[in-house]
């Protein structure tokens, strides 16, 4: 079976932390769906543990995290760690939101695959996922 053509890319769009600004998360979820991906949206105020559990249950290729509150340095590394801890080594973690440039390289070193700053086109995110999601065996 040819996994590349049959299996749709599966993405968990997640909103951790206390922040309720979900405009970005919902626009991204819809854009990815329109691009033919399977998208699961977690809803608001998910802990890193809840996000990792949902990622495993839904068997996703990527987790897109939206954070506007400044809590990314606390939340993102923990999500990466939990995913790796449950054997999801290839699952990409993407971050979108208000992230100071100083934090970008640090977050990448801690395993975040890409950080999308304000003004990013949804097409760039679709392209990134298509190019970077590892084909399944």
């Amino acid at each position: 079976m040819d996994s590349m053509t049959d299996r749709k890319i599966r993405v968990l769009v997640a909103k951790p932390g206390l922040d309720g600004h979900d405009r970005g998360a919902k626009v991204i979820a819809r854009a990815l769906r329109d691009a033919g991906m399977e998208v699961i949206y977690t809803g608001l105020r998910q802990t890193p543990e809840m996000i990792a559990a949902a990622a495993l249950q839904e068997d996703v290729d990527a987790v897109g995290v939206s954070i506007l509150s400044g809590a990314h340095n606390t939340l993102c590394p923990r999500i990466v760690e939990l995913l790796r801890g449950q054997g999801m080594d290839d699952c990409l973690v993407l971050l979108g939101g208000i992230v100071p440039k100083e934090d970008v390289s640090k977050l990448k070193a801690e395993g975040v695959a890409e950080i999308f700053l304000p003004g990013t086109s949804t097409e760039d995110i679709v392209k990134f996922l298509r190019e970077n999601v590892k084909p399944r065996e």
Partner: peptide, 17 residues
Amino acid sequence: LPTLMGYDADSPLSEGE
């Protein structure tokens, strides 16, 4: 955000915020 959501600064949910 913790104040807006009715959590104290020492709540585990307030971490990072």
